[in-house]
Design a protein around this nucleic acid. Sequence first.
DNA 1: CAGGCTTGTGAATCGCGCTTCATTTGTTCA
DNA 2: TGAACAAATGAAGCGCGATTCACAAGCCTG
Lengths: 221, 221
Amino acid sequence: MPYRQTENVARRLAARRDAIVVAAGDVAAEGGMAAVQIAPVATRAGIAAGTVYRYFPAKTDLIAALVATLSARELAALEDAAKAAPGPLSALAAAITSFAARALAGRRLAFALIAEPVEPEIDAARAPYRQALVDEFGKLIRNAQAGGRLPDQDVALAAAALVGALIEGLIGPLAPAIPDEPAKTRMQVQALALFALRGLGVVDARARGLVVQAVLPTTDK
Amino acid sequence: MPYRQTENVARRLAARRDAIVVAAGDVAAEGGMAAVQIAPVATRAGIAAGTVYRYFPAKTDLIAALVATLSARELAALEDAAKAAPGPLSALAAAITSFAARALAGRRLAFALIAEPVEPEIDAARAPYRQALVDEFGKLIRNAQAGGRLPDQDVALAAAALVGALIEGLIGPLAPAIPDEPAKTRMQVQALALFALRGLGVVDARARGLVVQAVLPTTDK
DNA sequence: CAGGCTTGTGAATCGCGCTTCATTTGTTCA
DNA sequence: TGAACAAATGAAGCGCGATTCACAAGCCTG
């Protein structure tokens, strides 16, 4: 019985797999999704191109792993923000502003993760994140509805429209690397959140209050 | 002076150019943007692949021409719908419902024109249409604002968010070829328009009224 | 209708990254 | 230590569709 994978090796392999995903993330953060090619990622991870294929059967799978990683992080942040809020409506507001603020903070990567034009195949790998986002917002909307804080409406549709409004409203600012003007950024986040909340049926005055509340704790991270 | 292009020839060339664009549109309507490849388009237009390059220096230019054509048509419809409305707010409502209803009527092509994942290069050719849409809605928003019918807000941002909400809200229904259920479609259009108008700051009750008004004349075409 | 141009043709070329694979290097264990 | 396997390597191959180009066919005018 001359060989069996040892604990040590297994760990090294897992670490290397992670390293590849991290390298892919770095490349994406710097040059966008288009820059995530096997050769550069491999170089960045300090391995040969062929080696990548020992860990991922195809490029698409690597992208999927990358998306899953980033996606989990973003969704967790979203949930945290919502959980910390006092009520279902402010949870919604918190989630919205958190999403927008985080996206603007990590522009390049957020853009790569959700909106940058990419080959259809790679876009397919991104779809689950988008869907998860919609689902998450859908859940928050349903909660608010259950509490009688929102009018009845098609939740799936509203969630999709909400996400669409956020993404499109962020894209302009996302794409170019705008010289950060924190004040302007905050205004933008507020305006978007306001649009979204009103769209869901929160009356203007109340929406404004929620947004102001939500932006305070959100923008510092 | 052995040759000069005659009137007749010029006309034939122009006609052929149009035919190529039309062929491209047909292919797109049937198989999506990905299906718009030189060879199939040429075949459809009844010419050889190489001939396409006598009319368009590169595939991107053909796509751009296609987008421009469709785009002009859609924008005209948008303006017509808005113009026929009695006031600035109902003009907005009419434009929104018109856009949504038309998109759902010509799903495949609308999807190809605005949302289908495509190579970045081709996406670039689509950008002007998106921008034109945003501009057009921006104009309508500004009009309504000027009439005191909408709260003050960043018009560009609001227009972008509006377009994003519409697109994303339509994508689900757009992508698959849903067996048409006119009633359901109308509901969807209404819900989206409602979201959009409320997002802009129209109070719920008024928005509902506008939407109902707008959907009637819009859905019959 | 001949010469000189334009237009059309479609098979061959090209570019570009993903992917493969024969070979080398590393690891395990009797 | 060496037999048996696993992992890493990176240059070569490949697929795919846009693009080219040498040549043929079509128009125009003197």
